[in-house]
Structure formats: C-alpha cells, structure tokens
Computed example of a mutant assay.
Amino acid sequence: MKKFVSMLSVAVLSASLLCACGGGTESTTTAAPPAGDTTGAAVSQEETGTPATTSAPTDGDVIVMKLANANPAGDIRDQVCRRFADLAAEKTGGKVKIEVYSGGSLGDWRDAVEGLSMGINEIVIEGIATLSAYTDLAYLDGLPYVFRDADHFQKVMLGEMGQEICDQVGEQGGFKLLGPQYRGTKVTTSQKPFSNLEELKGLKIRVPNNQVNIDTWTYLGASPTPLALTETFTALQQHTVEAQENSIIESYGHGFYDVCDYLIYTDHQHSADVFIFDRNYFNDLDPEIQQALTEAANEAAQWRTETVLKEEKEYLTKWEEAGVEIIYPELDGLREAVANLAADKYPMLKDMVDQIQAVQ
C-alpha cells in the first residue's frame, strides 16, 4: 500500500502538468422542483429559505445544502441522495438540511460541478471520472476492464486503496469526495445484436462526453457518439445511434427497454459514484459537521452498494419481462482489444492499473 500511495502521488503530480480532456458521466436536463423528502430530511426550498454559501456558518445556524443529481427522481441515485440527506439531518441533530435536486434541475453534470465553487449548489453526486477535467487521475474510474468483477471493485475502491484515490483526486481537483459507492457493472443496450468483437464493429453507440469512454469504444472498433443522456432516448428512436452504455439498473430507469431489443452483458466497466463538495467549502465547516457528513455519506454509500449487488440480477429479469433479449458475448476479445488503452492513452496511470489488477 505504501508503494501504491507513493506512486499515486507521483502520478497525480505528473497528471497536473497535462491538459486533461473534459470528463463526465450521465446527465439529464429535465427541469424539476427540488425533490421532497419522504423521510423528512430533504425539504423544499420554501421550507429551508436561503441556500448556504461557500463560507462556513456560525454555530447554531441551520446549514442548507443543495445536492445536484442528474438522474431521474425515484431511481437508485435519487434514493441514495435522499438517504444521505436523512442521515445527515439525523447525525447533525438537524443542523444540516440537504435539498435533493434530481432530474438535472440544477443543470447537467458540468454545470453542477462548476456550480460547487460558485455556491450554486453545495454537493453533486457523480462518478469519479466526471472529475477528469480537473485531474487525469480520475480517468482510473472510467478505464475498461480494470476490475475483474464486483468483488474486485469492492476490495479496491471501497477499501484503503480506493480511499487514497478519492483523497488524491480531491486534493488535485479542489474537491472533497465522500461515500464511494458501487454503481453496478456497465452493459450495452442495443438495437443491433452482437456476441463478439467482430460483430460490434461499426456500432453507432452513444457515450457520455468523456474521452476515456470515446477511446474505449474506438479501440473496440465501434463508432462512439458523445451525446447528452437527455437526448439519447430520442436518438435511439430516430436511429441516430444504435446503442448506449450504462449500468443495468440505471439503463432500465431511463426506459431504454422501449427502444433497444438487446441487452449485451459487456461487463466492461465497474465504477464509483461519490458525493462531491468544493474543498474550501467543506473545510470551512465545523469539524463535527464534517465528521457527521462523512459518516452519513459512508452509510448511504454502503446501502447503495448492497442494493445494487442484490438487485442487478433482479433487474435482468425485468429487462427480459420487457421483451429484451439478453446476450452474453465472448469477452476475451473485448478485453484484448482494449488491453493497451491505458499504456497508449493514459501512461501516467499504467502502473496504478497494474497494481489494481494485482489485487486478489
């Protein structure tokens, strides 16, 4: 671990000298009011009054934080946000009230991340790879086939090594990352079936505007198209694209079973969502509040990880019940096609990828 931490620090320092491409995960822009709290923790804007600013409040003040979530209200991301809000209120004795804004009502993920430093919102839930615009280290979260399976992901990203990665990404990018949580394995939903590398050649697939996703599908021989998630359903309807990538549960939540006949279990990425704060804002909070938020985030994250692990298989059944054929492709060819991606495009991360893959 000491060796990993040392190499991690060197890589982060090197990455800071490079010009990183814009990162991102999924986003929606559907306008919606702040989500009400089913448990009493996340409350409406009328109830909470003026939102918190980037300066730390004085003792006795109620701290109102806006949490931006790009995914639709009611899906698992929204649920973990509400749980975080509930736990934060409980652990701070009501000193912190978190408003959950789902459905991209505070803008897409880029707007929300940029809004942290301006006090527009205080928290964002997003994938670590979203922060690749601020540090190349965040690309680790988006590289394909770095993790063998969910167990391997948990050993790394939900353990000491993962905490070190989160700390370094935060320090490099000016953020505080709390509560790393498992999003689930990424699959491909498609209008065109494929069961091996050769058959997916030329596939017109929608990807988030994130260079590592674009590179991944280019190496696989597909034709990646960066597109906002809000435009993806229509793009599939109009056959502008033929496929999209996302987790099993989140893909179902977006209704892609209505426009895709196949779910191909490509299992190509295991990634983490985190609760992201502006670093200066978080550090200005009272230490007791910081600790309470950290505990609340970790508990909410554990709930989501356990829920995803339990429900992924159940959601595969839901896909079949919706009339979608599930295909388990030959994965060795896919892995081989992207085997040199880290060394070719992200050489500053190659040693860390090797260390992660060595974890048993």
Rank of each mutant, 00 (worst) to 15 (best):
K2A: 15
S6G: 06
S6T: 15
S9N: 14
V10M: 03
V12K: 04
C21K: 04
G23H: 01
G23P: 00
T28K: 05
A31E: 13
T38H: 01
E47R: 04
E47K: 07
P51V: 15
T54V: 14
T54K: 03
T58K: 08
D59F: 03
I63S: 02
I63N: 00
V64L: 04
L67G: 08
N69M: 15
A70Y: 00
A70I: 02
Q79D: 11
C81H: 03
R83C: 01
L87D: 03
V96K: 00
E99D: 10
G103R: 01
W109K: 02
W109A: 14
W109H: 10
D111I: 14
V113N: 04
V113Y: 04
E114F: 12
L116V: 04
L116C: 09
L116Q: 02
S117R: 10
E126S: 11
E126Y: 10
G127H: 12
I128H: 01
A129W: 00
T135F: 00
D136H: 00
D141W: 09
G142E: 05
L143A: 00
V146L: 07
V146F: 07
F147L: 09
D151P: 02
F153N: 01
Q154R: 07
G159N: 06
E160C: 04
E164A: 12
G170R: 07
G173E: 12
G179E: 07
P180Y: 08
Q181H: 10
T185R: 03
K186C: 05
V187I: 14
Q191N: 12
P193V: 15
P193G: 13
L197M: 11
L197W: 12
K201M: 05
R206N: 13
R206Q: 10
P208D: 11
P208C: 14
N209R: 13
V212A: 03
N213T: 15
N213R: 11
Y219C: 09
A222H: 12
A228W: 00
T234S: 06
L236C: 08
L236Y: 10
T240E: 11
T240W: 05
I248K: 01
I249F: 01
S251K: 03
G253W: 05
G253I: 05
G255D: 06
F256K: 02
F256Y: 14
Y257T: 13
D258H: 14
Y262P: 07
H268V: 15
H270S: 10
F282M: 11
N283C: 14
Q290A: 09
T294A: 11
E295W: 04
N298K: 02
Q302T: 13
L316C: 13
A322N: 07
G323Y: 10
V324N: 06
V324W: 07
E325P: 01
P329N: 10
D332V: 13
L334F: 15
R335S: 05
R335Q: 15
V338K: 05
A339S: 10
N340G: 08
A343L: 05
K345S: 01
L349T: 05
K350N: 08
D351F: 06
V353N: 03
D354T: 06
Q357D: 04
A358C: 03
V359M: 09
